[in-house]
Design a protein around this nucleic acid. Structure first.
Lengths: 117, 117
DNA sequence: ATTACATTTCGGTAAATAACGAAATGGAAA
DNA sequence: TTTCCATTTCGTTATTTACCGAAATGTAAT
């Protein structure tokens, strides 16, 4: 059983919160997230592993792509609660970065972006 | 403004979750918490500083004692939400440690305990 | 089969965290 | 004012974290 403290630790990083915020908009692959966050592929992969291991997201492979999505069907009440809470918490923040992320997400195409930048 | 990630970081430690759980029962001083957690005074003081700086708890001095309590009057919606959520999350956990903490809290007297163990 | 490419794993590094004991602080009592 | 004592601050250490680039993995297309 994942402890409550551990659950909070999994979402105690700004980049992981941004990832969850973006995944609320739509399913994303590693390279799309990498493009928005400006991090190395390997770093994004690590963040996704942490979110997955703690039950916040799911992965589904589609050929060479790995698609990540929010685990909105989780049987863990705490996950459901936190996933629904985070968007309202973000709104409470003054930061514009989360809205910028969403705008950028809807403008990128993984087929163009990946492997280039 | 404290970011959402930062807020989660403040409660991403098992000992700080235990402190919040105990403070739900009643106001406590450093030495009482130290006794239950089995940590050094200075370590407990640090944990309390983090919880205070992030808005989860308040302190009020009473002579040589410093009393800590939950900041249930916070104007930050996120604090209110998290403080009410944590007890339900803990219940979801299998861990008995939180209930044991509460039982022990109600058996200790700061006047007897402090300075001895 | 070979190449191409998205992703993960590995090895390493710099910074952050949690812990301690010792020294400093500040209020209460002697 | 001197002493006592709860707490905080300081200095240090071991561990964890976030990050990167390079190498390994696995799938698709040539």
């Amino acid at each position: 059983m994942i402890t409550t403290a551990q659950l909070f630790k999994a979402i105690s990083d700004q980049n992981r919160i941004r990832i969850l915020n973006m995944l609320k908009e739509r399913i994303l692959c590693v390279c799309e997230i990498r493009t928005i966050l400006g991090l190395a592929n390997s770093t994004v992969s690590q963040h996704l592993r942490i979110l997955k291991e703690n039950g916040f997201i799911e992965e589904s492979k589609d050929g060479k792509w790995v698609n990540y999505s929010l685990n909105i069907k989780s049987s863990d009440y705490r996950i459901i609660e936190l996933l629904s809470l985070i968007p309202t918490f973000i709104k409470e923040e003054e930061e514009k970065i989360f809205q910028t992320d969403l705008r950028r997400i809807n403008k990128i195409d993984r087929n163009i972006i990946c492997g280039i930048s």
